[in-house]
C-alpha cells in the first residue's frame, strides 16, 4: 500500500474541513453560523474571542472558527491561519463608512502565506438592508478583481433571512473537497 493510498484513507475517514471566518466587527459572522444551523439569532453579542462550531454539512465535518473582529482582536487572527482549508470573509454591505477599512484588512490577510492555498468566500452580508451595496458594487470597492491565483467567490447573503448562506457554504465545501478529497 503506497503512501497516497494511506493519505486517501485517513482523509476519507475524517473528511474534515477547517474554515476560518473573519471580517470586521459587527459584520455578522456569528449570526451567519447560527442561522446556517437554524438557531435563534435574536440575542447575539459581540464575540470577544472565538466561537467554534463543529457540525456536519453534506457529509463533511466542518470546524468553523468564527473569530471576533474588533480592532483589539485582529492582531490575534494570525494564530488561527494554520491548516485552514477555507477562508470566509464577511462584509457588512451596508456599513459604507468602514468599507476602506474592510478592504485594507482583507487585502492584508490575503498576503498571508499560510492562507495562500485556502479557498476564499466573501459573504456580502446584510443584503436585507435597503442601502446595502450589491455584489458588483462591492467587488469594485473592495478591489476583488486584483485577487488572482486563488479560488474566490463573492456571494450576496442575509444572515437575518438566510438567503445566500447555503450557496456560500456549498461553494466552500465543493471547492475544498475537489481540492483535498481528489480521490474520494
Amino acid at each position: 500500500m503506497g503512501l497516497l493510498t494511506i493519505i486517501k484513507k485517513v482523509k476519507q475517514k475524517e473528511r474534515e474541513m477547517r474554515i476560518l471566518m473573519v471580517g470586521l466587527d459587527n459584520a455578522g459572522k456569528t449570526t451567519i453560523v447560527k442561522r446556517l444551523n437554524g438557531e435563534d439569532i435574536t440575542t447575539i453579542s459581540p464575540t470577544l474571542g472565538f466561537n467554534i462550531k463543529t457540525t456536519t454539512y453534506k457529509g463533511y465535518k466542518l470546524n468553523i472558527w468564527d473569530i471576533g473582529g474588533q480592532k483589539t482582536l485582529r492582531p490575534y487572527w494570525r494564530n488561527y491561519y494554520e491548516k485552514t482549508d477555507a477562508l470566509i470573509w464577511v462584509v457588512d454591505s451596508a456599513d459604507l463608512a468602514r468599507l476602506e477599512d474592510c478592504k485594507a484588512e482583507l487585502h492584508s490577510l490575503l498576503q498571508e502565506e499560510r492562507l495562500f492555498s485556502a479557498t476564499l468566500l466573501i459573504f456580502a452580508n446584510k443584503q436585507d438592508i435597503a442601502s446595502a451595496l450589491s455584489v458588483a458594487e462591492l467587488e469594485k470597492v473592495l478591489d476583488i478583481g486584483s485577487i488572482t491565483k486563488r479560488r474566490c467567490r463573492v456571494v450576496a447573503c442575509s444572515a437575518v433571512d438566510g438567503t445566500g448562506l447555503r450557496e456560500g457554504f456549498d461553494f466552500v465545501v465543493s471547492d475544498v473537497s475537489s481540492r483535498i478529497y481528489l480521490f474520494s
Binding site: 444551523n37 470577544l48 474571542g49 466561537n51 467554534i52 462550531k53 463543529t54 457540525t55 456536519t56 471576533g68
Partner: peptide, 10 residues
C-alpha cells in the same frame, strides 16, 4: 481575556 465557545453537533 477572551470569552470563547465551542458548539459541537455530532
Amino acid at each position: 481575556n477572551s470569552t470563547n465557545s465551542w458548539e459541537a453537533i455530532y
